[in-house]
């Protein structure tokens, strides 16, 4: 479904070439839920950008459903690390934008957006402007805005980073439910190892910059997992421990000691 072959990406910084990602080989199957974790600046967002066709790799290629990604990939929904809300539109207006583009009528748009605004817990805030919301609320609007138009693949870049622990669990559960119901393919970037193991069928660990995939670990938890009670699950603890030791090495080399 999504295939990275020897992908590398270089930026120019202060006139010098700078390698942000290298030798990425990754195959994500249709309907798979992959979580990605790695040190800050290792190239996770860059990988998602290439998958969405917003950036071109300097070496290798990215394929989506057997076709090389050469331009913007409208098959994927992308919730970027930064909120791309339109400041002059209300919460509802932002959530409805993709539906407007598809030419849905007003009533239908309202019905659909209401479902997702309620899902992310923002009922009652429909008429607020982004400037009037907290950082976590804006993240949730971004999530609703992406889910509402039902793209077949979801790229999520730290979607729950700004949320408190309770809300985060609730939204993790919702996301898993949506994934089970719709069979979407999901690539989910996070900084939180608990979250990576709780959600992913596989977890990819990136090495520090220039990032490449260091380990991919399968998580043998049932698809119908209960995110609220995973912390004492034996498989969860085993996978978590294995991943932590290899993730820790990256940080030790990066900042010295833990």
């Amino acid at each position: 479904m999504i295939k990275f072959t020897n992908v590398s990406k270089e930026f120019v910084r202060d006139g010098q070439p700078f390698l942000a990602a290298r030798d990425i080989n990754l195959h994500i199957k249709q309907g798979e839920f992959l979580t990605v974790i790695g040190p800050s600046g290792c190239g996770k967002s860059t990988v998602l950008n290439m998958c969405a066709g917003l950036m071109k790799p300097n070496g290798g290629y990215v394929e989506y459903k057997g076709k090389k990604v050469k331009e913007i990939n409208t098959k994927v929904g992308y919730m970027t690390q930064k909120d791309n809300l339109l400041p002059w539109r209300t919460v509802q207006g932002n959530v409805e934008i993709a539906l407007e583009i598809r030419g849905l009528g007003k009533e239908e748009r309202e019905k659909e957006s209401a479902v997702y605004i309620e899902m992310v817990g923002l009922k009652g805030f429909e008429k607020h402007y982004p400037a009037e919301l907290s950082g976590g609320m804006r993240r949730r609007v971004s999530l609703a805005k992406m889910l509402v138009y039902n793209p077949e693949t979801l790229l999520l870049d730290e979607p729950f980073g700004a949320l408190d622990a309770q809300l985060r669990l609730i939204l993790q559960k919702k996301l898993l439910e949506i994934w089970k119901e719709t069979g979407k393919t999901i690539i989910f970037v996070t900084h939180d190892l608990d979250e990576a193991v709780a959600l992913g069928q596989r977890v990819a660990i990136f090495s520090r910059s220039p990032g490449t995939i260091k380990v991919i670990e399968k998580v043998n938890l049932p698809i119908h997992r209960d995110v609220f009670n995973l912390r004492n699950n034996e498989e969860f603890m085993n996978v978590h421990a294995r991943l932590w030791s290899s993730l820790r090495d990256e940080f030790v080399e990066e900042v010295g000691a833990i």
Partner: peptide
């Protein structure tokens, strides 16, 4: 903001919609 333009392009907006909505 270029990011806003990318965002609406990913949703499949055409040139006219990009102009009018962003």
């Amino acid at each position: 903001d270029d990011d806003l333009l990318d965002d609406i392009r990913l949703m499949g907006a055409n040139k006219r919609q990009i102009m009018l909505k962003v």
